Simulated scan of single mutants.
Amino acid sequence: MKVSIENLTLAYGKNTVVRDLDLEIADGESLVLLGQSGCGKTSTMRCVAGLESPNEGRITIGDNVMHDSSSGRTVPPNKRNVGMVFQSYAVWPHRTVFENVAFSLQMQKVGKDELVSRVHETLDLVGLRELAERGASLLSGGQMQRVALARSLVMRPNVLLLDEPLSNLDARLRERLRMELRELQLRLGLTTIYVTHDQVEAFALADRIALMQNGRIVQSGAPDQIYTAPASGSIAEFLGVGNLFACSPTPGLSGAVTLTDHDFTIRVDATVPDHSDRLLVCLRPEDLTVTPMHEETTAGVGWAGRIDVASYQGASVRYRITLDGGPNIEALATGSSKGALHIGERVAVDVPPGAAQLLVDDRNQLVGALS
């Protein structure tokens, strides 16, 4: 079902954690609320679940109003048909897998035959049918999280809410369960709100990302849109999408900026304001080209520099390079051993046309707002 959030405000005393927030989640859409700790993403989700009472605003699931501050109407959490999966597994260790998943249906007084059928059907979905009679205390972390997911899915919720459910798992298991979660969401057509501070997780699971700062949504879009076109310097820095350098317009040269701390000029595909002291140029590591620089190499092949760090990451190699007379810069190349460069090697770094992006530097403003 679709979810509509209008003018949502939530405050604890003088501390406002969600500020006049508007959000629409389409039927069957996977929306990820992404942001740093304390930005208001979990509080927003808890308002949808009915676990928090907003000071202002209106929340609708399907055609039913769940909360309306103006009229004082609030539907209790157990009447909203919303499934929730938390960071902690919250699995009863003294019960079997079957008993854990069946508990919510027992509370709803579902008949025995239907209960057994729905529990087995849901355990099939999450790959735990063969463990139905195993005690929960004997499960691995990944299996426990599947039990927690099954316990929500068995209710056939209108909306599934997930609050950092994979953060307690190791990296490899997290990656596998991301794919399983995404596959399950697509197969069932579930309307899903997923909360995380992990950018990779957000990109992997979302149809759309709503990025939050200081209780507000500051950018919303498909994962590739968020990554390739961050709306500001603080968003780009949080996403880790590039090398960020303070800059200013280059006098007498249209469509170019000069780095504030180094005499480096970079072309940008954007209109550069005539006067601004709050500009950043963003150079994504994967957009840069790094080639060996031999003694016979002449000028004009790019910025010259030396590799300080080479970090092999399997499918890629990440380099940190100190440019001659310039800043440190990071570049990402494919992980082929044949073309690998080495620490101390002299290289040329090229910025292809259109690779540099100009952003507003709002990072100090954000720090002030959060303090």
Rank of each mutant, 00 (worst) to 15 (best):
M1R: 10
K2E: 03
I5H: 01
L8Q: 06
L10S: 10
G13T: 03
N15A: 15
L21S: 06
D22V: 07
L23S: 05
E24N: 13
E24G: 03
I25M: 08
G28P: 03
G28D: 03
S30G: 14
L34S: 08
T42G: 02
S43I: 07
L51A: 11
P54I: 11
N55G: 15
E56A: 12
N64D: 15
V65M: 03
G72L: 07
V75M: 05
N78Q: 12
N78H: 14
K79N: 11
N81P: 04
N81E: 07
M84W: 09
S88F: 15
Y89N: 00
A90C: 15
R95H: 14
V97R: 06
V97M: 12
Q106K: 11
Q108L: 15
D113C: 09
S117L: 15
E121R: 08
L125P: 13
V126T: 04
L138I: 08
L139S: 01
R146Q: 10
V147R: 08
L149S: 09
M155N: 02
N158C: 11
L166W: 01
L166F: 09
S167Y: 04
A171H: 05
R172N: 11
L173Q: 05
R178I: 09
E180A: 05
R182L: 11
E183F: 13
L184V: 09
L186Q: 06
T191M: 10
T191E: 04
Y194S: 02
T196R: 11
R208V: 15
L211T: 11
G215V: 09
D224G: 11
I226K: 01
S234P: 09
I235N: 07
A256K: 01
T260F: 01
V268C: 08
D269V: 08
L280W: 01
E286C: 04
L288N: 01
T291H: 04
H294M: 15
E296W: 11
A299Y: 04
A304V: 06
G305R: 00
V309I: 03
A310G: 07
G314R: 05
A315F: 05
S316I: 06
V317E: 02
G325S: 00
S336K: 11
S337Y: 03
L341R: 04
H342P: 12
E345P: 01
A348N: 12
V349R: 00
P352N: 00
A356S: 02
L359F: 10
